[in-house]
Design a protein around this nucleic acid. Sequence first.
DNA 1: AAGGGCAATATCATTCTTGATCATTAATCC
DNA 2: GGATTAATGATCAAGAATGATATTGCCCTT
Lengths: 88, 88
Amino acid sequence: MIKNDIALEIEKYSDFNRAKSLLIVDAILSNLKKSLDNDEKIEIRGFASFRVVPKKSGFGRDIRKKKQIRIKKGKRIKFRSGQDLKNI
Amino acid sequence: MIKNDIALEIEKYSDFNRAKSLLIVDAILSNLKKSLDNDEKIEIRGFASFRVVPKKSGFGRDIRKKKQIRIKKGKRIKFRSGQDLKNI
DNA sequence: AAGGGCAATATCATTCTTGATCATTAATCC
DNA sequence: GGATTAATGATCAAGAATGATATTGCCCTT
């Protein structure tokens, strides 16, 4: 499933063309990103929740040189399935 | 951020009322769930991807009895941040 | 406006993911 | 459709998630 499939769903409930439907999808995604950028959690009951948590991992690995690499700390997105997605 | 905020975004681009906007949001979420139910991956470039992977964990813990518990295998959703969500 | 019901939290050991990079595959822009 | 560019897979070690359950908090339906 890709972005286009989401736009198709919007078209089912409106008379918007593909371009406008995609515009709305992008606007929604942009808002979701903006929310996480601001360290705000996203919670959609019955689907899933997203939260921003500090990244503590301190080491990674360079596959070519087969050596460890320091990883700068930062943030990451923590995803958690909601009720309806728990048992699939 | 909650489901209502997503509906608000749809209203910005349409003349739909809250009820209809929420109907569309639910329809989209339903489609996403249906896709994962069918073991189909979701890939939204620039945002994130979701995939269904087998659950291999075999043990959990009962916090009250402080004992280990067998966990039945199954499936779970694997979330992966996209390019724009990597560096937040 | 408000209650019903789902989500967050804490706990511990085992299992799994994170993280950089290059090549390959595929989503998305035009 | 073609071209562009992001996502996936592989690797290894250390850090983090998983999983059950009751309680608290709050989203969401009526």
